[in-house]
Nucleic acid binder design. Structure first.
Length: 460
RNA sequence: GGCGGGUUGGCGGAGAGGUUACGCAGCGGAUUGCAAAUCCGUGAAGACCGGUUCGAUUCCGGUACCCGCCUCCA
């Protein structure tokens, strides 16, 4: 029995899918204007574990996971426009497509490196413009939206439940007074469903003129097309709770009153870096690719993420990465060549089923070092210790037998002469080159370790 | 101003109303020529003030501090 903390009810609840043969989850995906930063990766990894858990419990073929690409966005437009002005060939729409194709390729490569499974569907907003227009027209027909000066706005006052997810009332929000006032709005809280595009912006023909959709409508339209009017889980970062998810609920529930939209809302807390919010101005902003390029394996990043419960702020530190790497290196050495067990340790499943307690699951794994097969099989439930992710931990292919023989000989001699200086000298040199030196009664063993540097062995 | 989250041992970080979290580091021991690795053992905690209770770090209330959202940033 899986239990999840539902933001909608603010409680941990037993998870009961609408249809156990088709469990449906939707995750708000990236706006593809640039490389994904580290914060973007947290929900991907966290909800990848949920996806794996659901597949384990309900069967691989009985889970549908949708994660969208937002490829309508002013930052994308700006990039495409500047490329066009710089003389790039093609129409603006083609340049936008090229830019988003490029970014999606990066995104896939980076998330693959973190061991995240690809969702079953990765819809692009631009492929669902027709569905969005249809939904908007329907909302107008039902009195929940109105067109004005080429804009279409959602009439917030027409949906009495508005604010229920984030625990705000429309009046409270107006009191906050940070809403954009515009002459075409009936109410300051009304939000844009459709907006006009001038010649320099991408646009699609619609009943309200050439324009482009507002941000929130895409998730409502795509989730409806792919998952239906009611589905099980909707997830994303806590920063999306308001206004994005609130607006999605308003749109979807008004357009499809026959459905309940998402039953369970899951929100992950934000990521921090060395105790501070990641931001460009603080100089601690970096992408997943930056870390990978620094030699930090995706598996290590994943491990660090999973050490903290998704509902708590997570602090990324170099120290954590180093510890995670050491642990994974140990586990990988322990399970090398071992076939993973088919079953998953009960403790791991229990922890995951309890609102995705990944930190608890990792603690259980620590206790399985005596059973390598079970350790490996259980870790794979979390997307760790997978064979395809392990190249980073592989020992370099080097033949150290000559050096080992030399060291053994020096050692044997030293045992008689009691002069250990030559042995220690060679040992230090080996250690400096990143070689692990093991000496016992049985003999000498040399293993290339973490910081192995073949060049430093040349002189020996 | 409104809404929400957090505060656990040297560090990271969970669960549970009463019984060891766990990992890293530390300390003691085995092992080693000395180490490394490995194994065994071990000290150390729950922001503050009240309340409920036989008993709270765990439930409730308040205070302080930190953080996020309300600005189409996950």
């Amino acid at each position: 029995m899986i239990r999840l903390h539902n933001t909608k009810t603010r409680r941990k609840e037993a998870f009961r899918p609408l249809d156990p043969r088709n469990v449906r989850m939707y995750l708000c995906g990236p706006t593809v204007y640039d490389r994904a930063h580290l914060g973007n990766a947290r929900p991907v990894v966290v909800f990848d574990v949920l996806y794996r858990l659901l597949r384990h419990v309900y069967g691989t073929g009985h889970v549908t996971y949708v994660r969208n690409f937002t490829d309508v966005d002013d930052k994308i437009n700006a990039t495409a426009l500047s490329r066009k002005e710089a003389g790039a060939p093609g129409t603006l729409e083609e340049l936008i497509r090229a830019r988003t194709e490029e970014t999606i390729g990066w995104y896939h490569a980076d998330m693959d490196a973190l061991g995240a499974l690809r969702p079953d569907h990765e819809p692009r907003a631009t492929d669902y413009i027709g569905a969005m227009i249809a939904m908007i027209a329907d909302l107008i027909a039902k009195g929940h939206a109105y067109a004005k000066d080429g804009h279409v706005l959602f009439r917030v006052r027409s949906y009495t439940e508005y604010g229920a997810l984030s625990g705000r009332s429309v009046d409270d929000m107006i009191a906050g007074a940070r809403v954009e006032v515009a002459p075409f709005k009936e109410d300051p809280m009304d939000f844009v469903l459709w907006k006009p595009s001038d010649a320099d912006l991408p646009g699609w023909d619609s009943p309200w003129g050439r324009g482009r959709p507002g941000w929130h409508i895409e998730c409502s339209a795509m989730s409806y097309e792919l998952l239906g009017a009611s589905f099980d889980i909707h997830a994303g970062g806590i920063d999306l709770q308001f206004p994005h998810h609130e607006n999605e609920i308003a749109q979807s529930c008004c357009a499809h009153p026959e459905g309940g939209f998402a039953n369970v809302w899951l929100h992950n807390e934000m990521l921090q870096v060395e105790g501070k919010k990641m931001s460009k101005s603080l100089g601690n902003f970096f992408t997943v690719r930056d870390l990978l390029d620094q030699g930090i394996p995706g598996e290590v990043i994943r491990f660090v993420f999973l050490q903290t419960h998704y509902g708590k702020p997570m602090d990324w530190t170099a120290e954590k990465a180093a510890q995670a790497e050491a642990t994974l290196r140990k586990w990988r050495a322990l399970t090398a060549g071992v076939a993973p067990s088919h079953e998953v340790a009960p403790g791991v499943l229990e922890a995951l089923a309890d609102d995705l307690n990944t930190a608890g699951a990792l603690a259980v794994l620590h206790g399985l070092t005596g059973e390598p097969a079970l350790l490996k099989g259980s870790a794979q439930m979390l997307g760790l210790l997978l064979d395809e992710m392990g190249d980073w931990a592989k020992a370099p292919e080097v033949d150290l037998s000559e050096l080992a023989a030399k060291l053994a000989e020096l050692r044997a001699k030293a045992m008689e002469t009691k002069d250990f200086a030559p042995v220690d000298a060679l040992k230090s040199a080996l250690m400096a080159a990143g070689v692990e030196v093991r000496m016992s009664k049985a003999g000498v063993e040399l293993l290339p370790g973490a910081g192995f540097d073949a060049a430093k062995l040349e002189a020996l």
